[in-house]
Design a protein around this nucleic acid. Structure first.
Lengths: 231, 231
DNA sequence: GTCTATAAAAAGATAGAC
DNA sequence: GTCTATCTTTTTATAGAC
């Protein structure tokens, strides 16, 4: 089965080059401002050639997302292998650190959640959905494990933790701090890791166990049920 | 000076209607996907008429940002007046709560940080810059006060706290949770307030005061200088 | 599959009558 | 100032030769 492998390999390399360019441009300008002309200019091919590989601009973005999701899955596997006995919370922090490093390196594609045509294309993209679910599942295991170990707030639904991790992977605060130029990349990462996992507020001195007093500043809240709404 | 006031008032009302539409559309679709045609269709005027009031699409976005910034400044004044003796941390949480409510109401305009033409227009917009600096200054007072009171993490530079508050005002996690439909608006707000100020990690039991042990999971970090880089 | 050339459509902005 | 009609540019996508 390695007969036409040379040609196919060349084609595969070309596609990789396209997706790498798309990934970089998505990180730099976002989906709406990235144009197909820029992509083909960056890769050095004709536009019609690109459309032989990908059917639409949305497909390009999906391919870039699949690429970064698979990089993330590989990183998760690496973390698991490197220290199989590590606490789940440590692993989650390591993942957050990795996503921030990717973003600081200008390699984190950012897709606007509002674009409906893009959203529809992603929801119809089997491979993208599969990788996204795989990543969510694997992170979910660590999240529930960390909660069971008492290392993550039990009041936070696991999905909130998951969404927060995804959101921090493209947090604009990172870009603002980098643009400020006052901190090194590693300093930025540690600061944001602290604010994400430790919170903005100072650690409470653990007084006479008044649970969430700091969260009800002015008015009394209704005694409605809080926390999880579904099992 | 109230001679032509009727005509002028009518004009002002028309401009207000335009900016309100722009505000809503910016919250719904973002700057890049919002079209001027949509705006004029929503307001019910001709495109050329709109361009008599605003010179460009970027000017429209700037006007919407001025509007929301002034709403925020008014909310700050209200909070100060309502309880002048309230701790700064409570005030900051109240502000965060207000921004989340605005976002849940679909009234928080979101501008992409990547669009350079928009960025240039905003940096040249005097009123916008003035309001943005006013808001930053007023929040900065509360932030430093809360840190002095020991209620905010002293390791976090004040600008990081400020940027984080701004970022949480348009956090995509809010939209994801609302789309999930499992939680009420107020539940979402309390959950995100907890994760923002309290962090994802569970409160540390305050062991033998090992400062940031949880932040160094796998590898030892370089002993480089951390924390603030400038006074 | 790759190229040049060209649709086809969208969107920001303006001309000119009233 | 407001309107209709139009211009201009940008951008996605495709024909058709090789």
């Amino acid at each position: 089965m390695a007969k036409t492998s040379f040609r196919e390999q060349q084609l595969q390399l070309r596609e990789d080059a396209i997706v790498a360019s798309v990934n970089r441009l998505l990180a730099e300008k976002g989906f709406d401002l990235m144009t197909v002309d820029e992509v083909v200019a960056d890769v050095g091919i004709a536009k019609a050639s690109l459309y032989k590989h990908f059917n639409s601009k949305e497909d390009l973005a999906a391919a870039a997302m699949v690429r970064v999701l698979e990089r993330a899955l590989a990183e998760l596997a690496r973390l698991r292998e490197q220290d199989p006995a590590a606490p789940a919370l440590s692993q989650l922090k390591a993942v957050a650190r990795w996503t921030m490093r990717v973003q600081l390196a200008g390699e984190m594609p950012s897709l606007p959640a509002q674009n409906s045509s893009l959203r529809a294309a992603l929801l119809g993209h089997k491979v993208y959905l599969d990788r996204l679910m795989s990543l969510s599942d694997e992170l979910g295991v660590w999240i529930t494990a960390a909660q069971a170990a008492g290392d993550l707030r039990p009041e936070l639904p696991p999905e909130v933790v998951l969404y927060t991790l995804f959101a921090r992977a493209c947090d604009p605060v990172l870009g603002l701090l980098k643009a400020g130029g006052q901190y090194s990349d590693e300093q930025i990462i540690e600061i944001l890791l602290l604010s994400c996992f430790g919170g903005l507020a100072a650690a409470q001195p653990l007084l006479e166990s008044e649970p969430n007093a700091a969260l009800a500043p002015a008015k009394k809240r209704a005694p409605a049920s809080r926390g999880r709404a579904s099992p």
